[in-house]
Nucleic acid binder design. Structure first.
Lengths: 262, 262
DNA sequence: TATTAAAATCGGTCATACCATTTATCCGGC
DNA sequence: GCCGGATAAATGGTATGACCGATTTTAATA
């Protein structure tokens, strides 16, 4: 646990430009940029930090809350406020995208396409860079899919892990984060979907094609396989949406939210 | 100006799961999802809304601030709090990505690559879908680049507009938003960079190649042209970074922040 | 009618107190 | 001496009330 014995926290300049809370945000952001605050670090208690920065506690809390909203800080009652730890792949919060989708009326087709583009990109990169371990993981997940054709829930677990492994193999954490951001939104209702065994078998086959293309270090083939995989998944989802339209006749506009095999 | 005469705002259930402010966030998000709150709408005054929701004003403000941090709401002192208007292309706040880059130590090469993948994707889609107007706009921007080879600042304006036009022509606002998110981060220091005329001319040529490929409805060529364009831009930026290393010997680690011709 | 000034509106900030949860401490029993 | 549960301290979450500053609206005035 880091001790802030030195005066890292400078008092807010009264002759600032924006609002006080904005200045607090800037202050904290710069400290993260400079490395004064590192992942996992714990911030001083709000009461102390407010004094250090020369602002009131509500104002400080406003700044903290803004940074917490974007996933940089995390406050736990009774424990403290921490810089989000970088365990595993870095992830961006998908709620902003989700809300933007609502505000602008994004269609699920648009979401699918965005995901498709991102998945194709990472698949291509993965074909160039995947390590032996990563390819072994992909193979295992594909095998897991074939082994759980009769268990859609378990199938979905392997499905998700396969895509995450491919993304990790791309070596680009930004693309990985963006992809997860979109995939998360598409995932929510996907888990509710009951899939037919034939769909699962076809899906598993498509994943195997992607894996083989990556294994053969063929980016174009990997991209093509991923494209076809997700196109089929989207078509399957659209069909299922039609069927499910009878169950929930209300709000038949379709709109946002999506899911389905993938 | 929307009037909230009806009781759209339900009192927060005391038997909730998370914290009170989280419940406020959920409440507001659902209202946006349901369409009760539409882009441009103004929320009731904080004091009134707090009463309607049955929470205190600080708690309500915490929720509002969280949504404002992700770009869904916007508060103006004296005026009120509004749902962000959807004028022009929807945009995601890039600060989360920026902070994540700091936390995880993303290299600028990784940023460049992510941008390249996204730009290639939208260029390919644009080649399939660009309208006549959009292609005309691209052409104008390319012409503007050639016309401002001696004015780097003006050149950059046309440069940015060209890429935004291509993104818009892709017809996928999600990819466009993600691309802008990454491009924004790369842009910040780019404007400071002074470019040589030869670089600008080459850059303009590359943009023309992209435009022509889109004009000819050739997605593969568009992707290839965009790839080469951004690869050259990255190389040029890296060279310039080397040169600039003498001016700012401190913090020679490079780290984040990027720019350069593109 | 147009301009200006006053007033109401509304978000921003501050101070204070208390609650809920977590963490650390202490003490007794084994 | 060691362990475990009870107690206390630390810390974020919420509430109340007040005041300030920017904005908008309204009214008075030229």
């Amino acid at each position: 646990m880091t001790d802030f014995n030195s005066d890292i926290f400078k008092t807010i300049d009264p002759e600032r430009r924006g609002t006080t809370s904005e200045e607090v945000i800037s202050q904290l952001r710069e400290m993260i940029h400079r490395g004064d605050l590192r992942p996992g670090d714990r911030l001083p208690p709000e009461r102390d930090l407010a004094k250090l920065l020369g602002v009131s506690r509500p104002t400080l809390r406003a700044g903290i809350r803004s940074l917490a909203a974007v996933g940089v800080l995390h406050s736990r009652q009774g424990a403290g406020t921490f810089v989000v730890k970088a365990d595993g792949p870095p992830s961006l919060d998908s709620s902003p995208l989700r809300l933007m989708a609502s505000l602008h009326g994004f269609t699920s087709a648009e979401m699918f396409e965005a995901r498709q583009s991102l998945e194709m990109a990472v698949a291509g990169l993965a074909a160039e860079r995947a390590t032996g371990d990563q390819m072994a993981s992909m193979s295992e997940e594909v095998a897991g899919m074939f082994a759980s054709l009769d268990d859609p829930e378990q199938f979905l677990v392997h499905d998700v892990r396969f895509h995450q492994t491919v993304a990790a193999a791309s070596g680009n954490r930004i693309l990985t984060s963006l992809m997860n951001m979109v995939a998360t939104i598409l995932f929510d209702t996907r888990i509710k979907t009951v899939k037919r065994a034939t769909d699962l078998k076809e899906s598993a086959e498509m994943h195997r094609h992607v894996y083989r293309a990556i294994r053969e270090r063929n980016p174009d083939a990997a991209r093509a396989a991923m494209r076809e995989h997700l196109e089929r998944a989207q078509r399957a989802w659209e069909l299922e949406k039609q069927d499910a339209a009878d169950d929930t006749p209300a709000d038949g506009s379709g709109g946002n939210g999506a899911g389905g095999a993938h």
